[in-house]
Design a protein around this nucleic acid. Sequence first.
DNA 1: AGTATATTCAACCGAATGGTTGACGATGCT
DNA 2: AGCATCGTCAACCATTCGGTTGAATATACT
Lengths: 126, 126
Amino acid sequence: MVDDALRLWFCHLMSDRLDSVFAALADPTRRAILAMLLEDDMAVTDVAEPFEMSLAAISKHLGILSRAGLIQQEKRGRVKWCKLDPDALREASVWMQGFGQFEAVNLDAFERFLASELPDDPPPHG
Amino acid sequence: MVDDALRLWFCHLMSDRLDSVFAALADPTRRAILAMLLEDDMAVTDVAEPFEMSLAAISKHLGILSRAGLIQQEKRGRVKWCKLDPDALREASVWMQGFGQFEAVNLDAFERFLASELPDDPPPHG
DNA sequence: AGTATATTCAACCGAATGGTTGACGATGCT
DNA sequence: AGCATCGTCAACCATTCGGTTGAATATACT
């Protein structure tokens, strides 16, 4: 049995963590970085390469992702390797599932959403 | 198989929406509001009651949640009722699932859906 | 009609965010 | 040793964010 003070403390801890995870995910550059790291571990410079912003900016983004627990960074020699750490994402996902009367991936709702968004921006196809 | 142009378009499309959803979720007050609405629909004043901040502040938070698609607001008489709308959460969840187990987003089904939906029937947006 | 209630608007404020640049400490190469 | 590369730090800037307050609008009550 968990007493109320402990529960409060737990929620508070959880709250800070969710703050930083969701805030980290709220930026398209950082989501793009995560997507890149999904395919392979990368050095900071290589992460920065496809983006049209300074290395320092990317370095900051990586710091935010790291502090949120979404990636891990390990320095080997003079290069710092970045790898995805999906644990924090999983926590956030668990939180979200609490709202889900939804089974993991509901493609129907997904498609309904897309249908509502379609007219704006036709896909560059063909 | 989905071609790269389509994937790019897809990412761009989702991007704005994900920005606002994750940004909305990155605030503990707003997450608390969502948790309250999970139990029941509420009027703005009632949502504000347990928080130690002004009604105007809560009204702003509700606006952010609403614009992110996380809640729906309906005015009946002089009271505006707020209800949870888990669709946006579901979309964000879909995105996150991509980083967990790799059934990823089913882009094949997505493409088939687009093929059937794109040519005519442009749904009104906004 | 007059008053109370529900909600938003507008203007403001301090702090945080996302970016820049230039200098800097470390590490590797020759 | 000398130089190039990797990455961060510090200072700055414009914009956004989360909050306040007071006025305004719309609806309900008597």
